[in-house]
Design a protein around this nucleic acid. Structure first.
Lengths: 154, 154
DNA sequence: CTTAATTTAATCTTGCGCGATTGATTGTAG
DNA sequence: CTACAATCAATCGCGCAAGATTAAATTAAG
């Protein structure tokens, strides 16, 4: 009665729940991020800007694993909303420098309660969360080392 | 010297590595799926079709956590490639029935080696993979039970 | 039987995400 | 100093995702 293991069945995939879970989490953020008029990607971009105040587009991309084709239009939208400023570097005009504005810094206060409210939705035990965190970064490390060097210190 | 825990720092997020990891995995699939002329979403859709042969769009969506606004154009593309057929149900003309074609079934053979080749890229220990699998489905279950009833038996 | 509510796929709009290309700027080799 | 390579941000095309709306078909209620 041994049922042969089928590697092409959806339920035997490890990648599918990862894909689906990421989507569901982004969806869970939506009501909270709507209050801030941010999408999820804009939100994590603001996190990077809250921490670093001023970065080149390239550096933002290193933190988020995104490139200019995604970030350029996204940063323009954040600029329209008034949360960041964009200007060319005078030393090297190829670089575009993104910096946080006062409105961007103020937005951080409005965002303070978001992580806790989301955590309440996810209801994940701290130990499992820690394991998940470690495993995910291990996979990211394995995959990004193969192609492309993601040294986080530019 | 206690550094206060900052819930708005990117490195303190559990959701960000989930989001980034899902993206990197889809990227890792790309070279293998390019050989099949499939995108990742098309690939998991084909998995559902390989298993079930014939489903309504609604049912495909239940398995993949996707709705018609994503699936309708995607299934049309799979139809253009010749891997699925689309027809209205005669009993209930609201339902559109998707069925696997011979070419779709044949594609399964070409896809057989994909899971193993991807697993080789990810290099995840079986025990960690099992933990990850369990945790992800736990989160998906928590999030999808809040809004929307995802009973997989229609 | 007729009207109203429900279900379903399709459509529309917005915003990623990424591969590929472009164009401007800078660095380097001869 | 000049040609060539490298490095950036920006652009383009395509394919998701998801919310909102639409239109057709079916079911339920009066």
């Amino acid at each position: 009665m041994a049922v042969p293991f089928d590697p092409l069945k959806l339920e035997n995939q490890i990648c599918f729940p990862l894909y689906a879970c990421a989507k569901e989490i982004v969806k869970a953020y939506k009501p909270y991020l709507d209050e801030l008029d941010l999408t999820y990607t804009q939100y994590i971009t603001m996190m990077v800007m809250w921490e670093h105040k001023e970065l080149r587009v390239k550096e933002v991309g290193k933190y988020l694993y995104l490139d200019s084709s995604t970030l350029t239009p996204l940063l323009k939208r954040l600029e329209e909303k008034g949360y960041v400023a964009r200007r060319r570097s005078t030393e090297d005009e190829r670089d575009l420098i993104v910096s946080i504005t006062d409105a961007g810094t103020a937005l951080r206060e409005k965002a303070r309660t978001v992580p806790a409210r989301l955590a309440a939705c996810v209801e994940l035990e701290p130990q499992k969360a820690a394991e998940l965190y470690q495993t995910l970064y291990q996979i990211i490390g394995t995959l990004t080392k193969k192609e492309g060097n993601f040294d986080q210190n530019p």
